[in-house]
Each structure stands twice: as structure tokens, then as C-alpha cells.
Amino acid sequence: MADSIRNLFIKNKRYKHLKKYWKRLQNKTSDINYDRRYWCPSFKDYLTQSEIINRLLSYHPELRQGYDCYQSSPRVLDYSENSTVQKERIEAFQELLSLDLTDFIEQHSKPIKNIKRKLFCS
């Protein structure tokens, strides 16, 4: 995926946007600011963090797929004092791990397999 994105966007504004704002894609959805707008010179507009993320994800479908998978894992791994909520999160995480990865991009299948191995073999 990295090579295809690099070849697709090199010397392009989209590539520069990804290079500049890639850390925003790693934020949890609960930490994203949906209200405060600030000036983004590369977009030449006032944008919220969520709008920046949506623009970045619109550049490539594999990026959206990887982002969705990445965002679903922290949500189910957050600890909760409520045992019912914690059980639901564990079930959701096991469901996430049991997804068929054949159509998923190769770069994400290896980390998920490692997570499965560490959680269920230890």
C-alpha cells in the first residue's frame, strides 16, 4: 500500500497533505476535536480535525479501510470498570480479530495476526 500511495501522490498536494497530517490519523476518535476550526495553510481553509481526517481518507480507499480497522481496535481495548461493558468490548475485539483478512491489505494483516498470537497464546 505504501508504494502505491507514494507513487500515486508524489509531488502532489495530496501527498504533502498526508505527509504533514499523518499523525491526525493516529488519534482516537474520542480525542478528535469536531468544533474548533483553525487555519490550515496547505488546505487554504479553516478546518476542524475531523474535516482534515475526512479529506485525507478521501484520497485512497485502502487508507480509509486501514483507518477504520485501526480506529476499531482502541475502542474495544479501552478498559471499563463496568464488567458488562468490558465483556461487550472483549466480544467486539474477538469479532474484529476473526474477520476474514484475505481482501484486506497485506500491511495490516501481519499486525492483526501478531495481536491474535499475543492475546490468545499467552
Score class of each variant (00 low, 15 high):
residue 42 S to G: 00
residue 104 F to P: 00
residue 46 Y to G: 03
residue 46 Y to E: 10
residue 36 R to S: 07
residue 47 L to D: 03
residue 72 S to M: 11
residue 102 T to G: 04
residue 88 E to L: 03
residue 26 Q to K: 13
residue 64 R to V: 03
residue 22 W to M: 01
residue 56 L to V: 04
residue 72 S to C: 05
residue 75 R to C: 03
residue 86 Q to L: 04
residue 96 L to N: 10
residue 24 R to Y: 11
residue 47 L to M: 14
residue 75 R to F: 10
residue 80 S to V: 02
residue 81 E to T: 08
residue 74 P to M: 05
residue 52 I to F: 03
residue 27 N to L: 12
residue 80 S to M: 03
residue 10 I to D: 08
residue 88 E to Q: 11
residue 44 K to Y: 09
residue 56 L to T: 06
residue 66 G to Q: 12
residue 66 G to H: 05
residue 118 K to C: 03
residue 34 Y to H: 13
residue 33 N to E: 08
residue 11 K to F: 02
residue 106 E to T: 05
residue 52 I to D: 05
residue 26 Q to A: 10
residue 35 D to C: 02
residue 60 H to K: 01
residue 36 R to C: 01
residue 51 E to S: 06
residue 5 I to F: 04
residue 68 D to S: 10
residue 69 C to Q: 14
residue 37 R to G: 00
residue 30 S to R: 09
residue 12 N to F: 01
residue 12 N to D: 11
residue 42 S to D: 15
residue 56 L to N: 02
residue 100 D to T: 08
residue 104 F to Q: 15
residue 119 L to A: 12
residue 47 L to I: 03
residue 85 V to Q: 13
residue 102 T to V: 08
residue 23 K to L: 08
residue 63 L to S: 08
residue 73 S to W: 14
residue 61 P to E: 12
residue 106 E to A: 12
residue 58 S to Y: 06
residue 17 H to T: 01
residue 120 F to K: 12
residue 77 L to Q: 13
residue 55 R to D: 12
residue 111 P to Q: 03
residue 79 Y to G: 04
residue 42 S to W: 04
residue 63 L to Q: 07
residue 1 M to F: 06
residue 77 L to E: 15
residue 25 L to T: 06
residue 69 C to S: 15
residue 121 C to I: 14
residue 28 K to I: 01
residue 73 S to R: 13
residue 12 N to W: 05
residue 52 I to H: 02
residue 28 K to Y: 10
residue 19 K to D: 10
residue 23 K to T: 09
residue 88 E to I: 01
residue 45 D to Q: 09
residue 121 C to L: 15
residue 33 N to Y: 01
residue 105 I to W: 07
residue 30 S to Y: 07
residue 6 R to W: 01
residue 79 Y to C: 05
residue 48 T to D: 00
